[in-house]
Design a binder for these strands. Structure first.
Lengths: 218, 218, 218, 218
DNA sequence: CATGAATGAGTCTTCATTCAT
DNA sequence: CATGAATGAAGACTCATTCAT
C-alpha cells in the first residue's frame, strides 16, 4: 500500500485525504462512509488520518469548509465586477453551475449530505448559503435600481427582492442537484442552466416591477 | 414504556410504528436512526417492529411509500378537475405546500433522506417525482393551449414545456425543503409559497410564448 | 393455517408435533431449528406447542425418547427369540437397518444431533446405546457358547466379547449414518448392510475363538 | 482479560484464536458457540477475531481446514512408506488414533460438529474423508496382491475392496468418536484401537479372499 | 513519521417464551 | 381450546478511535 513515494509534505497529504473523504462522503453519506474506506482511498494508514484531522466529525467539517470556500471563490472569480448588474448575475450563475458541474462530489457533500446529517454541519452550510443569498440580493437590487431610472416611481419592496433572491438560489441549487445526479449526454450544460434561471429571474423581476401578478381570484 | 394500553390491533400498531419511524428518520437520517430509538418512540419493543416490518430497509421503504402516497393523494385531492388549467395548477401547488407544511417529517424523509441514502430508495422517490412532473407538464401544456386560442400561431415546443415543468417542480421542492427547515413566524404560508411559484410559472410561460428571452450577448 | 379439521384429540396432536419436530431437528439441528418453524410444520400455533410440550428442551427430549423407544421396539420385534444366536443377531441387525432406513430423520436426531448438543440429551442417547450394546453382547456370548460345544476348552474373555460387541454396534451406527446421508440407487439395502456386518462379526468371532490375531510384530 | 502480554504478531494470535475456537466449537457445537465466548477463550476482544477471521462461518471453516490438514499430515507422517502393506495400514491406523486421541477437540469438530451443521462445512469434511478412504483402499488392494502370490487365482473384486475400506474407515471413525467422548482409565489406547481394527480388517480380507461368507440361509 | 495491533460501544436481528382474548 | 400480540435476552457484526513499536 502507499505505492506512491513517501515523505509527502503535510499540506499535500491533507489535500489528498480531503479529496478521498469528499469522494467517499458523496458516494456513501456521512454515516455509511467508514474511516477505513477513506484512509484506503487516500492511500494512507488510518492513524495518519487521525493525526492530521483528529476525528470523523472534524474531517467532515474540513470537507465542508474546503468545498464551501472553493464554491464561493469560484462564483466570486466568475463575476465581472464593473459590468451591469444583470451581466454580473449571469456570470455568477455561470460560475456556480460550472463549478458544481466540475466538482459534483463537493456539491453533493454540501447540498445533499451536510444538510441532512444534523446540526453541527447543517449550520456550516447555512452560513455559506446566507452569504450567497446576500450577494444575489445585492445584485437584484442593483438591477432594479438601474431599471428604475427609466420607469421611475415604481419602488420595489425589499421583502420582494429578498423573496426573488431566495427563490433564485433555491432554483439554482435544485438544478445543480439534479445535474449532479444526471450523467451522460442528457446532462444540461452550465450555460443552459444559467440561461434558464436568468429567464426566470428576469421575468420575475419584470413582473414585480410592473406590478403584474397572478392572483387566484383571477 | 408504552404508557398507552397494550393489545393494540396490528393495523393500528403499524401506523404508530411508521409515525415514529418517519419522525426519527427525518431527525437523524437513515443510518443514524437506530431501531431501538424508533421502537421506543413508537412505544413498543424492538422485536415487535421486526415482527411487523421485517427489517430496517423494509421499514424505511414502507415510510417512503406511505409518505409518497399521502403526498400524491393530497395533491390529487386539492386540484379542481374542471377548472381552467392555471387554476388547477394553483390549487395543486397549494395542496402540495399545505401537505408538506403539515407533514414536514414526511417531506424531509422523501426529499432529503431517501434521495441521499442510495439506490433501492432513491428510485422509489424518483418514480413519485416523475408522476408529479408529468402531471404538471400536462397542466402547463393545457394552459399554453388555452392561451394560444387568442395569440394564435405561436406554438410552444414540448421540450420547453417540460423544462418549465421541471424547473417549477424543482423550485417547489426547494421551497418546501426550506420551509420544512424553518420554524417560527418567519415561515412562509402555503399560500405565499404557491403564489410565488405561480408568478414564476406564469412569467416563464408568457415569456416562452411571446419569444421574450434574456440572452447574455445583450 | 390449521387447514385440517379442529378438535383433534391431544394424543394425536402431540404425535403431529413430534413428527414435525423430528423432521425439523433432523434438517436444521437443535439450535438452528426454531419453535416457529416447528409449529408451522406441525400446522398448529406456537402456544399450543408450549401448552403440550412446555419448552424446546422438553420437546427435544420427547423426540429423543420417542425415537429411541421406536428403534428399540423395532429391533426387539425383529429378533426371533428361540432361534440360534447367530440367527438372532442377523435378524436384529436387519431390524435395525430397516428401521433406520424407514425413519432417517429419527436416526439423524438420535445419532447426529442429540449426541452433539451436549449434556442433558447426550446422556439420553447413551442409555439407549448401552441397552443395545448389552443385548448384542449377550447374543455374541451365546453364540460363542454354542460354538464352544465343539471346539472345547477355548474360553473367550468377557473383555474381548465386549470389545467385539462395541465395535459391531459402532460399525452399524456408522453404516446407518452413511446410509441416512445417501439417497438414490447407490444406497445399500438393509439386507446388504446387515450381511456386511454379519461377515465382520463372524470373522472376528472365529478369530477370537481360534486365537488367530494380527500382531504388529508380524 | 488477556493476562498474557499484548502486541502479539498476527500469525500467533490467529493460532490462539483457532485453538480457542476448536475447543469451544467442540464443547458447544457450531450454533451454540458464541463469538464472545470464543474471543474470551482466546484472550482477545471480539473485533480482533473478526479482523483476522472475518465471520463465524469463515472461522469455523478455518478450524475445519486446520484440523483436517493436521490429521492428514499426522497419518501421512505415521506410515512407513516402504514397509509391506499390512504394516503401512497398521502404522497409519496408529497415527490416526494417536492424533485423534491427542486432539480430541479437533476430532470432535471434524466428525461430530462439521458434519451435522450443513452444507458448506459437511462438504469440506467429505473431501478429507474421501482422501483417507482412497488411501486405505490402495493399501488393502496392495495387501491383497501380496497375499495372492501364494494362493493364486483368487481375484478380489474392486467393489469388495472398496466396501472393506469404507467399513474400516467407518469403524475407525466410530471408535475415535467414542474414544473422544470417553475419559479416564477406561479409555482405550491408540494401540488397542488400532489392533482391534487390524484384526477386523485382516479377518475380513481373509474371508473375502477365501470365499468364506456368512449367509442368513445358514 | 508511519503502522500493525487492539478494543469499547453500539447496531441490526433473532428467538424462546408468555399472556389476554 | 386456540391464537394474535408482545417482549427480555442474547448473538453476529461494525466502527471510530488509540497505542506501542
Amino acid at each position: 500500500m502507499g505505492v506512491q513515494g513517501k515523505r509527502v509534505p503535510r499540506a499535500v497529504r491533507e489535500q489528498q485525504m480531503l479529496d478521498a473523504a469528499v469522494a467517499t462522503f458523496a458516494r456513501r453519506g456521512y454515516r455509511a462512509a467508514s474511516m477505513d474506506e477513506i484512509a484506503e482511498a487516500a492511500g494512507v494508514s488510518k492513524p495518519l488520518v487521525y493525526l492530521y484531522l483528529n476525528s470523523k466529525d472534524e474531517l467532515f467539517t474540513a470537507c465542508i469548509r474546503r468545498e464551501a470556500d472553493a464554491l464561493k471563490a469560484a462564483v466570486r472569480a466568475a463575476v465581472e465586477p464593473d459590468a451591469p448588474a444583470d451581466r454580473q448575475l449571469w456570470s455568477g450563475l455561470l460560475g456556480f453551475f460550472e463549478h458544481t458541474a466540475a466538482h459534483p462530489d463537493g456539491w453533493t457533500v454540501l447540498y445533499s449530505q451536510a444538510r441532512t446529517v444534523g446540526e453541527p454541519f447543517a449550520a456550516e452550510v447555512a452560513v455559506m448559503r446566507a452569504e450567497i443569498v446576500a450577494f444575489v440580493t445585492g445584485l437584484i437590487a442593483a438591477a432594479a435600481r438601474d431599471a428604475d431610472c427609466e420607469a421611475a416611481d415604481q419602488s420595489l419592496a425589499d421583502r420582494e427582492v429578498a423573496a426573488l433572491a431566495h427563490a433564485l438560489v433555491g432554483a439554482a441549487e435544485s438544478l445543480a442537484g439534479w445535474n449532479a445526479g444526471t450523467t451522460g449526454p442528457g446532462r444540461p450544460s452550465g450555460k443552459e442552466s444559467a440561461a434558464t434561471l436568468m429567464n426566470f429571474a428576469w421575468s420575475g423581476l419584470d413582473n414585480l416591477m410592473t406590478g403584474h401578478r397572478w392572483t387566484p381570484s383571477r
